[in-house]
Design a protein around this nucleic acid. Structure first.
Length: 402
DNA sequence: TCTGGGGTCCTAGGACCC
DNA sequence: TCTGGGGTCCTAGGACCC
């Protein structure tokens, strides 16, 4: 049986949510109506565009481009900082509203959800009517606009919600694929990014339709497994289900671009410790243990390097993970000036499945208790409420999120 | 000129085992 | 001297997404 899938996508999410919050706090201008962006701090070298208003888009400003360029395109551009606490609040409000329509709902990102409403459409209504109802209610009750794609599977629903913006409902049924999707540039297809689209162009594949009508074997022989995926997407084929199970993460990591390039190993290790504490805190919150510890650095020339190491026994101990990360960093670091440092834990297993280790000494037990005590305080009073003394300066510098 | 931070998935090459 | 083939696991790096 044909399924009924919706993809709900918040228009310029970070900017819209900031606008709603500002209006609630008595602001006179709605930043959605002026050339404005949400962006990082240029002085801290995090100056990229995270979201843009429609008037800003008219100046040719693009998401993820440096603010520096955006300002050249539009000198009177208004720039507002990001605030993930607020985004989480609005994202949750949207999710709660959508849950009234189905229990098969997948949070695809902070501002996108897939809904499978196949078994939840009342007899007197159609899928399109439900989409319009959600569209209207979100605007009236939450104050921001969404695009909704209505289709028989996830890829088509996602492509449909990406059609004309903002504040629109679009359908993309199988019969509409040639007229609504095949005329679009191949780079508009989900998963075709800035590396594969020039490669496709060189092969004379300019539109999604060009890709769809090529022989599947030819695309597979050129692009491997990835080729199979994009060929299927171009033909509107996607058998994946709307997955409402909240899955455990497969890896957890934190990284930070430093305000200045650094080659002082002590300073680098201090930042590494702060990042490790953040990562292990999240690891423990998920009740997971990690087997692989990885460290990444980015040089001032934007070269990325990484090393990792797998431990005999999975752990979530800040001390063990930090000691390992320091070791891995030593292998990796050749003394050059670095711009970014990151830590990542991988091969995660649930704590319940933990094997009793021969190395569970009283000393390790003490470390575990210390981690737990620190976590509790962070839980109760906020992440920054407790911190190792020598780290205070770094925390200020890196403005940690909750 | 300037280029965030959080993820997922894939690939290629090497080590090691039988 | 000449030296297979299948499998698993690990690592480094890269593409892509929001």
């Amino acid at each position: 049986m044909e399924r009924k899938i919706l993809h709900v996508d918040v228009n310029s999410a970070f900017l819209s949510w900031t606008a709603v919050e500002m209006l609630k706090n008595g602001a006179e201008v709605d930043i959605r109506t002026i050339p404005a962006v949400i962006g990082g701090d240029e002085e801290k070298r995090k100056g990229i565009v995270l979201a843009k208003s429609i008037p800003a888009k008219k100046y040719g400003i693009k998401t993820a481009e440096p603010i520096y360029f955006a300002k050249q395109k539009c000198p009177n551009l208004q720039i507002y900082p990001s605030n993930f606490k607020i985004y989480r609040k609005y994202s949750d409000a949207l999710y709660n509203l959508l849950c009234e329509y189905t229990n098969q709902i997948e949070r695809f990102s902070i501002d996108e959800c897939f809904l499978d409403i196949t078994n939840f459409i009342p007899k007197n209504k159609t899928d399109i009517e439900i989409a319009y109802e959600i569209h209207k209610r979100v605007k009236q009750e939450l104050g921001f606009t969404v695009n909704i794609g209505v289709a028989p599977n996830k890829i088509l629903a996602k492509m449909a919600s990406d059609f004309e913006k903002p504040d629109k409902v679009h359908t993309l049924y199988k019969s509409e694929i040639p007229t609504k999707m095949w005329n679009l540039p191949v780079s508009d297809l989900f998963m075709v990014g800035k590396k594969s689209s020039p490669k496709l162009e060189r092969l004379g594949i300019h539109t999604i339709g060009d890709l769809a009508t090529k022989k599947q074997e030819d695309i597979i022989s050129l692009f491997g497994k990835f080729g199979e995926t994009i060929w299927q997407y171009a033909n509107g084929i996607d058998l994946s289900i709307v997955n409402s199970e909240r899955e455990k993460p497969k890896c957890i990591g934190n990284s930070a671009t430093l305000p200045e390039d650094v080659n002082d190993i002590e300073k680098i290790e201090e930042v590494l410790l702060a990042l490790t504490e953040q990562t292990t805190y999240r690891l423990r919150k998920h009740e997971l243990l990690a087997s692989t510890i990885g460290v990444q650095i980015r040089t001032k020339e934007f070269k990325n390097y990484s090393h990792q190491r797998t431990l005999m026994t999975p752990t979530n101990s800040t001390k063990i993970i930090f000691e390992t990360a320091k070791d891995v960093l030593k292998e990796l670091y050749k003394g050059e000036k670095i711009r970014l440092i990151g830590v990542k834990v991988d091969k995660l297993t649930s704590m319940q499945a933990q094997q009793i280790s021969l190395f569970d000494t009283p000393k390790n037990d003490k470390q575990q208790k210390l981690d737990k005590a620190m976590d509790k305080i962070k839980e109760k009073y906020g992440y920054n409420s407790i911190t190792r003394a020598r780290q205070m300066k770094i925390d200020e510098m890196m403005d940690f999120k909750e």
